[in-house]
Nucleic acid binder design. Sequence first.
DNA 1: AACATGACTTTCT
DNA 2: TAGAAAGCCATGT
Length: 110
Amino acid sequence: MDQTSRDHRTQRILATVDCIPHGRVATYAQVAREAGLPGLARFVGHVLAGLPSGSRLPWHRVITASGHISSRPGTGPDQQRAKLGTEGVRFSRSGRVNLKVWAWDPTAPG
DNA sequence: AACATGACTTTCT
DNA sequence: TAGAAAGCCATGT
């Protein structure tokens, strides 16, 4: 895999994450699919892991397929959970997001 | 090339 | 709903 291709895919991932609307969430796999990289859910995680702390990207809208928040190095899940909370995303009693309700629908207009 | 690791997903119990 | 195991892809050593 060339460096160029790697950056290309990275850009796709970043662009897709940036497309997640306010108050919605998307799974890693979903982001990968929308980016044209099906099956590269883990790659999305790698890309997000490389984002700076002050990135403007809505990385907090990316969660696991179970509606859970993945443990990331350094900061705890509270940060992401709080960010989603300010956007109106409600969490289940078990600390999960109901993807049936809050999942981002790329096919929907707007 | 082989092994280990990770912000993952799916399937089974 | 919750936990364990297997599968998948990219990266670093």
